[in-house]
Simulated assay, not measured.
Amino acid sequence: MIKDKALVSSLFGRGSLLAAAACLSLAVLPGAHAQQQQAPLLGASQEGNPQQEIQQYCGSIVDPARDQRYLLQKQELDKLQADVNERINTLEARKAEYEDWLKRRNAFLQKAKAGLVDIYKTSKADEAAQQFDEMDINIAAAIIMQLPARQSGLILSEMDAKKAAMVAAIMSSAVDPTTSRDPS
């Protein structure tokens, strides 16, 4: 045992001899240390008010818990914002595609309409009237409105009287400034 004290004294110095002895006794008798540790903890909790200790504990962790909760909420909001931004980008891409498609469709319709009007400009009035009688009334009115007035008059005179009257009514309502553009 004296050899151990000399070793401890040389390692830790003379002031730490007592601390080294305590460590050595703890290493030799672990059960005694456990009993010594339990006694102060039990004594401390019996001395104070348990409710007060709980409140102190909860009070000491409330700010870090709130900060953690706010951090988690911020992360969730950031994730949701990223999702919204991604959806907005997707919608903007689709909108651009749709606008491009609509532009090409309208250009095609303008070309087709111009070509169709040119076809009826060169046709005979009695033949065109037969075709307009079979055609949808709105389409017939749209084409007849774009033909020269003289030719439109000839075609309308060759058409069925009821159908010609409906076409004339559509054409007059289209040029009437008091007619609402919104049909509903």
Rank of each mutant, 00 (worst) to 15 (best):
A6F: 13
Y70D: 11
S184K: 11
Q110N: 04
L11G: 01
Q68F: 13
M171W: 01
Q37L: 15
S173K: 00
C23N: 11
L154H: 04
G31M: 04
A6L: 15
E97Y: 03
S123F: 14
D83L: 13
L71E: 09
M1E: 06
A19I: 14
D136S: 03
V175S: 14
P40F: 03
D63H: 05
P148Q: 15
A19C: 10
G153V: 14
G43F: 08
A107V: 11
L29C: 15
Q151A: 13
A161D: 14
R104D: 05
L71C: 09
G153A: 15
P148H: 15
A161R: 08
L7A: 10
G59N: 09
Q68T: 12
D78P: 04
A65T: 09
Q151H: 15
A114E: 06
D118S: 04
A93F: 09
Q38A: 01
A27L: 06
K113C: 07
I170R: 01
S172E: 00
L154C: 09
D126W: 13
A161L: 05
L7P: 03
I137W: 00
Q146V: 04
N49Q: 05
W101H: 11
V117F: 01
P50M: 00
L29P: 12
D133S: 04
C23A: 13
D78G: 09
L77E: 06
I139E: 05
K103E: 04
K95Y: 11
V117T: 03
A107W: 07
K79Y: 02
A82R: 09
S60Q: 01
G31F: 07
E158H: 04
F132G: 02
C58S: 12
L91W: 05
E53G: 09
A125D: 02
A161W: 05
A141P: 00
P148M: 15
K74S: 02
A32L: 05
S16D: 09
M145G: 01
N49H: 02
A164M: 00
S45E: 12
M171L: 04
L80N: 07
D67W: 08
K124G: 13
D83M: 10
L109E: 08
I144P: 00
R150P: 01
M159C: 10
I61L: 07
P64D: 08
T179F: 03
E127Q: 15
Q36D: 13
R94D: 06
L18K: 08
Q151F: 14
